[in-house]
Computed example of a mutant assay.
Amino acid sequence: MPRRATPLDSDDGPQARFALALRRLRDEAGFNAKTIDVIAAESHMPRSTLYAALRGARIPTVPVLAALVRAWGGNQAEWLIRRTETEAEIESLRLQAPPPADREQSAPEEKQRTERRSMTRRGREVARDILRDHGDLSLAEIREPRPEDLMVKSWTDENILAHLRSNRRYDDPSYWDVLRRLAGAPTIRSIAWHSSVTQAQAARILKGAGKDPHQVASVFNYLIVQAALKRRLPEGVALTSES
Score class of each variant (00 low, 15 high):
R168T: 14
G135S: 08
L20A: 06
S43R: 12
S166L: 09
I36V: 14
P100T: 10
S241P: 00
W193T: 11
F31H: 05
E235G: 00
R117Q: 13
S195Q: 06
M45Y: 04
Q96P: 01
W72P: 03
A52P: 06
D136T: 04
W72K: 03
I36A: 03
A33W: 10
N32W: 05
T86R: 03
S106I: 13
K211D: 12
W176P: 05
P46W: 07
H214G: 07
E104W: 07
R117I: 08
R124I: 09
P7N: 08
E91S: 14
N75V: 10
R113T: 05
S92G: 11
V178A: 14
D37A: 12
A53E: 08
A71Y: 09
D11Y: 01
K34M: 13
D177H: 11
G236Y: 05
Y175L: 03
Y51N: 11
M151Y: 00
R83Y: 04
R204G: 00
P98K: 03
D12P: 01
E85N: 09
R232F: 00
E89W: 01
A41E: 15
I142T: 07
T187M: 04
V69F: 10
A41L: 09
Y51M: 00
A97F: 00
E242L: 15
R70H: 13
V225L: 14
L65S: 06
M1C: 11
E109R: 13
M1D: 10
D102K: 12
A16Y: 03
L229T: 11
A71L: 03
T61M: 09
L50F: 01
R181V: 01
E42H: 05
D149L: 02
P14L: 00
V178N: 04
R82H: 09
T240P: 01
L233W: 08
